[in-house]
Design a protein around this nucleic acid. Structure first.
Lengths: 222, 222
DNA sequence: GTCTATAAGGAGATAGAC
DNA sequence: GTCTATCTCCTTATAGAC
């Protein structure tokens, strides 16, 4: 059996699994759904991936590995372009948002599954899943936090961290259910138009970052 | 059997179900887990709620109904206080964020389940679940959008809608997994401190809203 | 490497006694 | 209203032929 055929077989399984996990979640998707979608035998999946958990792990690693790399590469590229000066908040935000949003511009068939899975995974408190991502996330977060601190040296560190969390949250929300957004806004917002989304997010969040520390209102929560 | 006992029985089931659904998701939580947590017989749940889906519906309605009411009430209160003038962006944000964040300040035992369930539900693309929330969400969104348009009359409507989606997304993220945030920020961010979170969010997002339309950068996404 | 067949158990839901 | 017992189906996973 040639190597190309093997790889295509595994890729088919990963594609089907990605779609199924994105649609129904880890527990909701069954191995039988997945093998039906991939057009392979049930035992084949266990031969290649060992277990349902192993399959999920492979699905996540295939996507989040390259994404992490791209995140770090784009940021480094902007740092090179800045030639020693701190990178602007706008550029940092672009580096945070562009790699994931680019997935929204992927071919239609795969697009929805990839992004929904990503958005979903971020808010899925399942311990095993979280652990798979922890290492990658920490590294990316640390890199962006460092860039933000250099760019906004006067801002308290905790404020920057909070704001970064808000950005990740908004991003996850967009990725997770673009359809809902389109429906709830009666078509005014079209999440598939990635460059528009990027522009909106950068404009919105950069203003927020630049205002850090300006107004600190306190409200009692009772 | 006195009415009080009945209610307490149903409430116990709802509490256990809320925790289970928040922990493991709809598909991951089993009816047997739930009855174990509630200390009741399996058949009791079917007697009161008919099916697993009916139980989920009841869980959601118990929380989202009052939340919707509170959202609208707080906004109306601020509108009264503004005496005909538009409500400030800061106040609108407070009205959006305070009711859900207040749940973070609830008694520790229930707190986590309620907020995680809410955060999770928002990003759960399950069709049935989404439908349960659609009506409530539309009404709340419309009310806040109207207030925002009155407060920022020069801003393009689509921009305001995008920005509102970002706020909901960030909120869902905080509610969903406060623990992850605490861990990933090495304790710098403490999501349980609701008034701090509110202040951070209002400060961040109000600056973003006020900057609407100022800078519209366009980046090619390729 | 790929298949069939099946093990072993958990799921949602219900019938019917009390 | 509450319980026991059970039905039926589907789940993950594996053993073993080819």
């Amino acid at each position: 059996m040639p190597k190309r055929a093997k790889e295509s077989r595994q890729a088919k399984i990963l594609d089907a699994a990605e779609t199924a996990f994105a649609d129904d979640g880890y527990n909701g998707a069954s191995m039988r759904d997945i093998v039906r979608g991939a057009g392979v035998n049930l035992a084949t999946v266990y031969y290649y991936f060992g277990s349902k958990n192993g399959l999920m792990e492979a699905v996540l690693k295939r996507r989040f590995g390259p994404l992490r790399q791209e995140h770090l590469e784009v940021l480094r590229q902007f740092e090179r372009e800045a030639k020693g000066r701190p990178v602007s908040v706008e550029k940092i935000l672009e580096a945070m948002l562009l790699p994931p949003l680019r997935l929204l511009a992927a071919p239609a068939a795969k697009r929805q599954a990839v992004t929904r899975l990503m958005g979903r995974i971020v808010t899925e408190p399942d311990a095993q899943t979280q652990e798979i991502l922890h290492g990658q996330r920490s590294e990316v977060r640390a890199a962006f936090l460092k860039a933000l601190r250099a760019s906004l040296p006067k801002a308290p560190a905790a404020d920057l961290q909070w704001r970064m969390e808000f950005v990740w949250g908004a991003l996850a929300f967009i990725l997770c259910n673009p359809r809902t957004i389109e429906v709830e806004t009666h078509g005014a917002c079209n999440p598939v138009d990635a460059s528009k989304v990027l522009a909106e997010m950068v404009g919105f969040f950069s203003a927020g970052f630049r205002a850090v520390g300006i107004s600190t209102l306190m409200v009692s929560v009772t």
